[in-house]
Design a protein around this nucleic acid. Structure first.
Lengths: 228, 228
DNA sequence: TTGACAATGTGTACATTGGACACTATGGTG
DNA sequence: CACCATAGTGTCCAATGTACACATTGTCAA
């Protein structure tokens, strides 16, 4: 909630600063992102990224985490600054600089979005079938996806999608969804195991009427590392 | 130059927004960056990155390019957004968000810095012996260097340091300086040539009392590409 | 003119990595 | 106990990366 009637004056014009967050998760084998339907102009009724204005005494990362938590009710997610967007005409009201972030929600977390006061609706959307987005948010989403896919190759970022414990098939499935291509099971397991990124929990996972799978956990959970 | 007496008012407090640029070049076999000595508080007399306030109707990239040109007199340099820094206490005067960029100046370009009006001095500093920097500029420099070195591996960014034409030894030298390690000449040449990134100009370069070197140019000059 | 100098330019052998590929193991279920 | 569905496993070949040494060429000075 922002302050009441009062004004803040500066000897030079200042832009407004917001953070916007691209929240990724995987539902039913598909990559999804969280969108908010705008209640007010500009772009009223249009879908947009969750985000909002930076409080004047709030760190940027904190602002993004706060927006994220307000929309999803979730904290402790992987959150990384992406890029800062600031074309002069990107917001028709005033000059707005948007510091974009992206976040990853683990598979098992039931993230039920909460519509904020200025939102008419909020929900998950399949990445492949996104509606038209407000402002330059399509550019932001595009860059976030590129960054995410690039990071699969040289970091442990995929673990940010995983629950505390998981099977190698589940992990492979996440890679396949993000890379949009099937991977060879043996090569995948060879690579993951040789990188020493996971350890067995010792338990098994019984999923259906078939052989149970070994359960693993990330060796450095909650820490995205650069590899190779 | 910013406007005179007049004030700009907003219903909510707005931070100030600046761009700061880490300008890299190579002189005498050493990596150097451009610093400005501050004439005014805060940090008066302290070295800082060149940069300045974003004009309200100016794109962010344009602002960074303008600051860069004001300090070096150079245009058309490679310039890339790095990260946005905005800790609440990073500037003691008011809340300042700094959108950091980095730029690369080719070897042959005689970049003679011009002290701006608010600078007491300006000049190149060896990256290995940087003075204490104002604000959080040491963090910015550190991140810029990391990004630069990382990009050597998977992009053609090194060519942004090269003149229009160059020898393979000169190119190898740039890699060695940035990576801080000697490279094998045959392997280096094999890799560069097999990637098909350069072509011979047909001319030769006579440098000293020894065999002349073939001159090459980048096949896609002025375009940093992602490779592999 | 020729010999010393200083940097250019070139190829091979080995180790490592990455990719293709098919069958057995195990628990659930009817 | 037979069938089903997914888990789990190893080898061969290709491509890539790395270590390594000597002949070539123009300059310069004796």
């Amino acid at each position: 909630m922002r302050a009441p009637r009062q004004t803040f004056s500066y000897p030079y014009p200042h832009p407004a600063v917001t953070t916007d967050v691209v929240v990724f998760t995987i539902h039913d084998g598909e990559l999804n992102i969280l969108l908010v339907k705008r209640a007010n102009p500009p772009f009223a009724g249009c879908w947009a990224l969750p985000g909002g204005f930076l409080d004047i005494d709030e760190d940027i990362d904190t602002c993004a985490a706060r927006e994220l938590e307000e929309e999803t009710g979730l904290g402790g997610l992987y959150l990384e600054q992406l890029y800062t967007f600031g074309k002069t005409q990107r917001d028709p009201r005033e000059r707005v600089i948007s510091i974009a972030y992206y976040a990853l929600v683990p598979l098992d977390v039931l993230a039920t979005p909460h519509a904020a006061s200025d939102a008419a609706d909020v929900g998950w959307h399949r990445f492949d079938e996104l509606p038209t987005l407000a402002f330059d948010h399509a550019d932001i989403v595009h860059m976030a996806h590129q960054r995410l896919v690039a990071k699969l190759d040289y970091s442990t970022i995929a673990f940010a999608f995983m629950p505390e414990s998981f099977t190698l098939s589940e992990l492979q499935n996440v890679y396949e969804i993000l890379l949009r291509q099937p991977l060879d099971k043996r090569n995948f397991r060879k690579r993951i195991l040789s990188l020493d990124l996971v350890e067995e929990t010792g338990r098994q996972r019984r999923n259906g009427k078939h052989r149970p799978a070994r359960e693993y956990r990330a060796r450095s959970a909650k820490r995205v590392e650069i590899i190779k």
